[in-house]
Amino acid sequence: MFETIKNLFKKEETFSCIIFDGKKMKYLDLTQKEIDRLKQEHKDWTITKKEEC
């Protein structure tokens, strides 16, 4: 039970990203799960981590 509670407060690593949807460019800090979800939902979007630039 302690591990379950501990995992609730664990902070996931975030990455600075540039998201381009064809019209607007957005700068966000996203977790890897969020990046993967956006890539699956929006195939035409370009998502680039700051480290990859």
Rank of each mutant, 00 (worst) to 15 (best):
D21Q: 02
K43P: 11
G22S: 11
K39M: 09
N7D: 10
D29H: 10
I18S: 09
E41N: 13
D36M: 03
L38F: 10
L38A: 04
C53Q: 05
H42N: 06
I47C: 07
F20S: 15
T4Y: 08
D21N: 09
I5P: 00
T4W: 13
E41V: 12
I35E: 06
K10Q: 04
I19C: 10
M25C: 14
C17N: 02
D29P: 01
K10N: 03
E34T: 05
K6S: 09
F15Y: 08
K39R: 08
T48M: 14
D29L: 09
K33H: 10
G22I: 14
Q32C: 11
N7W: 01
E12I: 00
L28A: 01
D21F: 02
E12C: 00
Y27E: 12
D21L: 05
K33G: 05
I18Q: 03
I47H: 01
K49L: 14
E52C: 06
I47G: 01
K26Q: 04
K23Q: 12
I18H: 06
M25F: 02
C17R: 05
T4Q: 15
E3H: 15
R37A: 10
F9L: 06
T46C: 13
T14Y: 02
K43Y: 08
W45V: 11
M1V: 08
D21G: 01
E51G: 03
E51Y: 10
L38C: 09
